[in-house]
């Protein structure tokens, strides 16, 4: 077996194994510690869990592509907030208010467009200036957040549209609207990454950039498209979430980038690019949400979840490294 094969296998399969372990652990531990009478594996509980995974999950799909492509995006939380503000505020504009429920698709379009434009700004800067995506998006994380505040000051932006709330709270075949969006996005992104030329080239660029360039693949437009996509998905996540909640604080979405990156890395996507899968990312997202809920279920402080996830992230990194190093002739540098 070539070095790396085992770790690749583990990286792909491990997250699901981890989820099963979590389920078993919390079910059993729940018998002893649970504060509520419900079983942890209660179907309603699991469905809720999927729904709650959606906001982070939808963005994580975009982050997977970005990271496979060899970049990173720290500005998704701010993009999420700005799209939410646009979504809710636009429905209060006079001409929109006059349109009744027809304002909804328009408001969605505005929000999604906002996300895509913000993503395009990031992508364009990374492409044209050659500044590292980490720095560019670190900057725009601040900048986009500033735009959120400039839009509506420090006040929350609120608009509750009951049609929208009904839509968001609807269940179809048992799954909530948000869950459908999450699954839909996962499927679409999977198709994009595995079936389209753009997806395959994105892998190639992240894997061996020089080879891709020598083969005539234009790196810039591909990066650009991926940034537009992640901006769009951050906005979609906001659309799904705020259709229901109806109120956005200017600080909403803070630290989302960290949660998203954690989920993606747990799912086995390489930081250096070229490798990763949206399905595993979905696993990463669910694993984190399970941990959150599970710890609550067994009566642990919800705060503990941060501690546990942080340590798990480091442990995953450590294990991955151990598996990769083994068998290779390591030079001690």
């Amino acid at each position: 077996m070539k070095p790396g094969t085992l770790s690749t296998f583990l990286a792909r399969g491990a997250i699901w194994g981890f989820i099963v372990l979590e389920l078993i652990f919390f079910s059993i531990a729940g018998q002893f510690f649970s504060v509520s009478d419900n079983a942890f594996l209660d179907p309603a509980n699991m469905l809720l869990l999927l729904k709650q995974s959606a906001p982070i999950g939808i963005i994580a799909m975009g982050m997977t592509i970005i990271m496979i492509n060899g970049n990173i995006d720290l500005s998704v939380g701010a993009t999420f907030a700005l799209a939410a503000v646009v979504l809710l505020d636009s429905m209060t504009w006079p001409f929109m208010a006059a349109m009744g429920d027809w304002a909804i698709p328009l408001a969605w379009t505005f929000a999604l467009l906002t996300g895509a434009v913000l993503g395009a700004i990031n992508g364009l800067i990374v492409w044209k200036t050659g500044v590292d995506a980490f720095i560019v998006t670190l900057g725009s994380m601040l900048g986009f957040r500033g735009l959120v505040f400039m839009y509506n000051g420090e006040q929350p932006t609120s608009h509750l549209n009951w049609t929208l709330v009904d839509f968001a709270e609807a269940q179809f075949l048992g799954l909530h609207t948000a869950t459908w969006f999450l699954l839909g996005v996962t499927a679409v992104i999977w198709v994009v990454m595995h079936r389209t030329i753009h997806g395959r080239n994105a892998y190639a660029i992240g894997d061996n950039r020089e080879a891709a360039i020598n083969a005539g693949i234009r790196v810039g437009p591909h990066m650009m498209r991926n940034f537009v996509l992640i901006g769009f998905l951050a906005a979609l996540s906001a659309v799904v979430f705020y259709s229901e909640s109806g109120s956005v604080n200017p600080n909403d979405g803070q630290l989302y980038e960290l949660w998203v990156i954690t989920a993606v890395v747990l799912g086995g996507t390489k930081l250096t690019g070229g490798s990763g899968s949206v399905i595993s990312t979905l696993g990463g997202v669910i694993a984190i949400q399970l941990l959150r809920k599970g710890l609550g279920h067994i009566g642990a402080d919800t705060e503990t979840v941060n501690l546990v996830i942080g340590l798990i992230l480091i442990a995953v990194l450590f294990l991955d490294r151990q598996l990769n190093v083994k068998g290779k002739e390591a030079l001690r540098t």
Partner: peptide
């Protein structure tokens, strides 16, 4: 990044 989360939890 992991420590950011872990220390916050701590």
């Amino acid at each position: 990044l992991g420590m950011l989360s872990a220390i916050h939890g701590l």
